[in-house]
Design a protein around this nucleic acid. Structure first.
Lengths: 157, 157
DNA sequence: AGATAATTGACAACATGATGTCAAATTGAT
DNA sequence: ATCAATTTGACATCATGTTGTCAATTATCT
């Protein structure tokens, strides 16, 4: 049997992935439009969210790991956010170079404003969807992610 | 009732979207690694696929519409592919400027090679997934896409 | 203590995607 | 036929993401 044969599930998955790309780009575009009036983008919003979720101040490299994102990229955006006064750096007692990232008052207010915009957006987008189907989708995505795991996130080696 | 209240479905959807971002980035990274030996990237691969799916030669702008992608961006990558000999331009009898994009022999061979790599990759990634669950995920994504539709794709106006 | 690893931020180069502008070419309305 | 609107490719700019390198710092091992 040739290796170019696709199983039924693989055929369905191939189509699903093309849909995934398109949906990802639409959600990003919609999110960008949503928070643009606040001077945010999806990427900046996500970083503010990571800082908030962390609970306590963390260095940039730790935030990047939490987000499963690129260290250098998070650093660049964090630096931009610092220039605009949304975040600030604090001295790290355990590491002289790795400063801690904290939200400024302006950063907190901006993030809260984004959350207030997000609520009606999410309510509308989820209207008519079954919670059960959403959970099924998350299970499928989790299975795919675990299969794709560990094959490309290491920085050195 | 405050507009910052999230319905149960909206709460599930918010988590789902964060998973969506991560899965999208992993699939892209995995796809890039898969076809890198062929000199392809996910973006180039997708464009070769659009040319193939079209059935007959089309101008860049039509391909971009088929892909629901950016016209200028597709143009840049198509130009790169032309420099590397994977695609070629043909005169368009109906439009002097809008040349038709066709795969060269090298382009066809490269795309076929990518498909041969993709088959075992998709079979492995879909192994253990229920076709029914994959279909459910596609339905949810389709519902989301239709809600996000028409709010940001127009080029002018 | 001293050597080696790992972590971290800074910097640079490049790929990708979004957006805007412009001129050439085509289409459509009158 | 003529003029306006649309389509299309070319070019430019910026935001984001990836990758590689380097030096400073910290952690680990002996």
């Amino acid at each position: 049997m040739s290796k170019t044969e696709l199983t039924p599930a693989a055929t369905a998955l191939t189509d699903l992935i093309l849909d995934l790309f398109r949906l990802n780009s639409r959600v990003l575009a919609s999110g960008d439009r949503l928070v643009a009036p606040l001077g945010l983008t999806s990427a900046r919003w996500q970083i503010l969210g990571a800082i908030t979720s962390a609970g306590r101040p963390q260095p940039v490299a730790w935030l990047a790991r939490d987000m499963e994102a690129n260290r250098q990229n998070v650093q660049r955006i964090v630096n931009d956010l610092e220039k605009e006064g949304l975040i600030a750096f604090e001295a790290n007692p355990h590491h002289r170079r790795a400063q801690l990232v904290v939200l400024t008052d302006k950063g907190k207010q901006t993030f809260d404003a984004a959350m207030r915009l997000q609520a009606p957006w999410a309510n509308d987008l989820s209207d008519g969807l079954q919670v059960e189907d959403i959970e099924t989708m998350r299970r499928v995505m989790a299975a795919m992610r675990s299969k794709l795991e560990g094959t490309g996130d290491e920085e050195h080696t």
